[in-house]
């Protein structure tokens, strides 16, 4: 992977953990990190609400695992706020999900560059996972089916970072 385009004030956030398929957000970042433009801020987040604490940025790119909008390994790309309602359906009540966080972020801190790049201010990448169902063991390893998707998503996101 190579990059040369200046992408100042861009923040790339991976939401994930060190466990099972939930790792995908972090693993995509690890693929991108060695090749990313040097002025991109990279944040490994544990929960969606961590996105609220990302310093002001003109472009925010978030990658997270997702569930229920396609087959395992499917890569989704949405430009906030144009996200299908199905995907925005809240799935937990203990904390805020990613789309609630993005809505809250809009209220609290409109993207500084919204006037110049309104459509690309927030970009969301989701990778469909399978091992997140109740009664399934959270494995320390990643599902094999996700490895190609992680590589593909990393390349696509890197393309966005370098050419947008």
């Amino acid at each position: 992977m190579q990059s040369s385009v200046n992408t100042s004030h861009t923040t790339l956030v991976g939401v994930g953990s060190a466990h099972g398929d939930d790792q995908v957000g972090w693993l995509v970042l690890r693929e991108i990190e060695p090749h990313a433009p040097s002025d991109i801020r990279i944040v490994y987040a544990r929960t969606p609400v961590d996105v609220l604490h990302v310093p002001a940025t003109s472009r925010l790119v978030v990658v997270d695992s997702c569930l229920g909008a396609g087959a395992e390994g499917t890569i989704h790309h949405w430009r906030w706020p144009d996200v299908p309602a199905l995907v925005q359906r809240p799935r937990n009540s203990h904390d805020w999900d990613l789309f609630e966080v993005l809505r809250l972020q809009e209220m609290l801190r409109p993207a500084p560059a919204a006037s110049s790049t309104p459509a690309a201010a927030v970009s969301v990448w989701g990778i469909e996972v399978a091992l997140s169902q109740p009664r399934q063991t959270v494995a320390p390893h990643l599902s094999e089916a996700l490895r190609p998707a992680i590589r593909t998503a990393a390349l696509q996101i890197l393309g966005e970072l370098c050419h947008a």
């Binding site: 609630e100 809505r103 809250l104 209220m107 609290l108 801190r109």
Partner: peptide
């Protein structure tokens, strides 16, 4: 909380 945030950021 979302609607409140708009007026009480």
């Amino acid at each position: 909380g979302l609607s409140m945030a708009q007026d009480f950021p």
